[in-house]
Amino acid sequence: MDNGAITFANKLRGNVFLRYVVVSVGALATDVGVFLALLELGLFSMAASAIGYSVGILTHWFLSSRTVFQDRVSDKGTAARTQQKAMFLASALLGLLMTVAIVGTGAALGIDPRLAKIVAIVISFLLTYALRNMVIFRQAPSV
């Protein structure tokens, strides 16, 4: 590996936000891929947006709980882990509602659903990152 790649890997390892961005890009690729495929199949834009977002969220939980917040995820089988999953799902549902509303409003205004989806991606990303980093996977207080 060259020095640039090593430097990036070290920054990635130590930076929660940067890791979250990388994981989000993977989940977003899944979300948008499903969204565009469903649009091509003729599905209504709001439904395609909701389904794509839902598949992206499953991808996001899998990746972020193992690579972004792995040191803050509660142990498997505990009530705390169940609570984290429930809160992660709640944050995803909030993002989903925001995404569907933005895409639906865009469609009602005659805006291309792909453009509305881009706006929804940015707003949903910022909202869910804030909730997940500061609430769901917050650092345990040091004793």
Results as ranks from 00 to 15, higher is better:
residue 86 A to N: 03
residue 91 S to F: 04
residue 54 S to W: 07
residue 63 L to F: 06
residue 90 A to Q: 07
residue 84 Q to Y: 02
residue 35 F to A: 03
residue 86 A to P: 02
residue 53 Y to S: 12
residue 13 R to D: 06
residue 100 V to F: 00
residue 12 L to Y: 03
residue 25 V to S: 10
residue 89 L to T: 10
residue 37 A to F: 14
residue 68 V to K: 01
residue 71 D to K: 12
residue 50 A to D: 07
residue 56 G to F: 04
residue 78 T to R: 02
residue 61 W to N: 03
residue 41 L to C: 09
residue 77 G to T: 05
residue 80 A to T: 08
residue 20 Y to T: 12
residue 44 F to P: 13
residue 98 M to H: 02
residue 48 A to W: 03
residue 31 D to I: 08
residue 46 M to T: 15
residue 69 F to A: 09
residue 56 G to Y: 07
residue 17 F to V: 15
residue 97 L to V: 15
residue 50 A to W: 02
residue 75 D to G: 10
residue 25 V to P: 00
residue 79 A to G: 15
residue 30 T to K: 00
residue 33 G to T: 13
residue 51 I to H: 04
residue 51 I to G: 08
residue 56 G to V: 14
residue 13 R to W: 03
residue 27 A to F: 01
residue 35 F to R: 02
residue 56 G to E: 10
residue 27 A to L: 01
residue 85 K to C: 09
residue 96 L to W: 04
residue 99 T to I: 06
residue 71 D to G: 09
residue 72 R to E: 11
residue 88 F to K: 05
residue 37 A to E: 05
residue 71 D to S: 15
residue 78 T to S: 06
residue 36 L to N: 12
residue 65 S to T: 14
residue 20 Y to H: 04
residue 56 G to P: 00
residue 68 V to L: 09
residue 75 D to K: 13
residue 59 T to I: 06
residue 39 L to N: 05
residue 96 L to T: 12
residue 40 E to H: 10
residue 62 F to G: 08
residue 73 V to A: 06
residue 93 L to D: 06
residue 42 G to M: 15
residue 65 S to N: 09
residue 28 L to R: 02
residue 28 L to C: 11
residue 19 R to C: 03
residue 87 M to S: 04
residue 31 D to A: 00
residue 36 L to H: 06
residue 89 L to G: 07
residue 59 T to P: 09
residue 71 D to F: 05
residue 78 T to Y: 00
residue 82 T to K: 02
residue 75 D to I: 04
residue 62 F to E: 12
residue 54 S to G: 15
residue 42 G to R: 13
residue 70 Q to C: 05
residue 48 A to C: 08
residue 48 A to H: 11
residue 71 D to C: 11
residue 68 V to R: 00
residue 15 N to C: 08
residue 21 V to D: 02
residue 50 A to H: 07
residue 52 G to Y: 04
residue 90 A to E: 04
residue 90 A to F: 03
residue 52 G to K: 05
residue 76 K to D: 12
